[in-house]
Nucleic acid binder design. Structure first.
Lengths: 338, 338
DNA sequence: CTGTTAGCGCCTTCAG
DNA sequence: CTGAAGGCGCTAACAG
């Protein structure tokens, strides 16, 4: 097919070792030979086989990135960040979409191993610790992003969900809302669990009861956000405010609210986690939590590269603080005369 | 490190050839040996090295997917589709983001070649035909998606942009709008060019002039949509309607309109290409074009697999029809008394 | 500084 | 039906 290293060597009148040395920027090659080799490489349009290289050195220069939902802007932002860092260090990114499906996640992890990736970044779809425990034991560089893996000493970068959730819900309470509902991702993943925790903390701190009938959890995706919100709002005693636990759930919730003809915040107030870029157009929520998505991706990639360079570094857990944004409309208290 | 094929062979008391045959589902292996091998594979948790395999067979079972903007929902939907088809056929997807940067695109194509991918799907960032011409000559399976490559006989799946653009602009005209502006992607990529063509066709068919001062083009991204729209609207004689040429440009346009305090469609009407899922919430446009994004991805993947299976098949060009959606609000004609 | 050589792990003829 | 053996293209000792 295309030129191999031997062709280049022969044409340039040197050995394959020299060609290899030149191409991998190794020292100890005379300028003359180096130039001659480079010239020949250009002539032959030689492109080293990364496959052969990977086999030889028992490691590819690929970083595996397994995210749980590629349609979620949160993750696309992460992807961007990881790609940026990787590219800067001559790594490429092998992206897979586990689709919130633990089996797919496992399959992809296997695939990554079979492809000899240099390391991987994963947003776990469940707190499936055994797998990650094994990876750590195999000394495979891996970092968890966005979601914690329980009981495993590994690198991870996550947001401070409990605090942030508590803050936005507190804001609702301070604006006079009393029956606050929640639409959250499943408690199987740490984000769902922690955001529930923050919600509950806020209520308890203000002497309000945590009513199970006001809490709905499920897969963190738009259709589910719609269904859960519908369910919540069509109860005999619906909430007067809703806390949504992630951006896609928020979209679903907005759809439901819209369809029921309710107005925000007059009929129903909203506090959202993970607001998307475009929501500004609608100012739908009283208060929102914005995660530093790009930074999370960047930190995760950096952590991974560090571990690849130094497999013995102790595990690091980076916790980033989300930003809380309050809308002007939030000043409009509900107790005011209509 | 982990188990190799020879370990399995030894443990099972057979040759590596037999193990290989069993694992690749080849016939001509007695049931007894097959069972024994499978058992041993399980015991040893043997995971064949895809790298070694790729080197040996001179091809990996990876499909390269190079998209121009991973933050664009259009493409994430395509990614989903490609992944679904690939997985079904035991391929994995290697996703890269060219970021609308032709150099990155080239780099990634090189990377794909070096990784011996089975084939690739690319949304070209420019009509850089030489590269694709070369790929076709090298008999590398490749299909272009969303955007045409000029003068190259290759597989591609695109939308009928001219017709669709003409239709939505016609709709604006029929609703009484006369000064219709356009915010489009650069004419360097086929989508931008064709959508401009459709816009111009619609105007001309109705005897309206195509005014250069009402047309803005640039990179198809949100910030640019904002800037171009701002520019358009702050002219002495601004348009009374705008046609936006892709979903991200639309978001930018909405932001600009919003910021200027204009109302849709009373102050400014909007016809959008590629509406995003969530826009329903805002009903911002009179009429929108929705592309069958998932289907485009699916078709592209299918085309690619067909070509991998049969490299001599003549090139196919699939043109999909977008759907045009008209809002009720569009019935409100502009000439009606205010 | 440069060349020779031995594999990396797997598949695939070619014999048996 | 099964085994033995030769590479796929590259890098990393080890000699010169």
């Amino acid at each position: 097919m295309s030129a191999k290293i031997e062709d280049v060597a022969r044409r340039a009148g040197v050995s394959t070792a020299t060609v290899s040395r030149v191409l991998s920027g190794k020292p100890y090659v005379s300028d003359e030979l180096r130039e001659r080799v480079l010239e020949t490489v250009r002539e032959l349009k030689y492109r080293p086989s990364r496959v052969a290289r990977s086999l030889r050195v028992q490691r590819s220069s690929i970083i595996g990135l397994i995210i749980s939902d590629i349609q979620n802007p949160f993750f696309t932002s992460v992807v961007r960040a990881v790609e940026d860092v990787a590219q800067q260090q001559q790594y490429s990114v092998f992206l897979c979409n586990s689709d919130e499906d633990f089996d797919k996640e496992l399959t992809y992890i296997e695939l990554m191993l079979a492809e000899q990736v240099a390391g991987m970044i994963v947003s776990p779809t469940a707190s499936g610790n055994e797998v990650y425990q094994r990876l750590v034991e195999m000394r495979v560089p891996v970092v968890a992003i966005d979601r914690r893996v329980k009981d495993v000493e590994m690198d991870m970068v996550v947001g401070d969900n409990t605090t942030a959730a508590c803050a936005v819900v507190t804001h609702l309470i301070e604006n006079g809302y009393q029956r606050i509902g929640a639409v959250l991702g499943t408690p199987d993943v740490s984000t769902g669990a922690e955001r529930y925790q923050g919600y509950a903390n806020a209520l308890l701190q203000h002497g309000l009861p945590v009513r199970p009938e006001l809490v709905r959890t499920g897969s963190p995706r738009t259709p589910n956000g719609y269904a859960l919100t519908m369910d919540l709002l069509q109860q005999p005693e619906p909430p007067d405010a809703i806390f949504t636990g992630n951006n896609l759930l928020t979209v679903g919730a907005l759809r439901a609210i819209h369809e029921l003809g309710l107005r925000i915040p007059d009929d129903i107030a909203l506090a959202a986690f993970d607001e998307m870029d475009w929501m500004f157009l609608m100012k739908p929520a009283l208060t929102v939590v914005m995660q530093p998505t790009y930074e999370m991706g960047r930190r995760a990639a950096e952590l991974l590269l560090e571990r690849i360079a130094n497999p013995d570094r102790p595990p690091q857990q980076v916790v980033l603080q989300p930003t809380i944004k309050v809308r002007e409309s939030s000043q409009r208290r509900r107790e005011l005369p209509r």
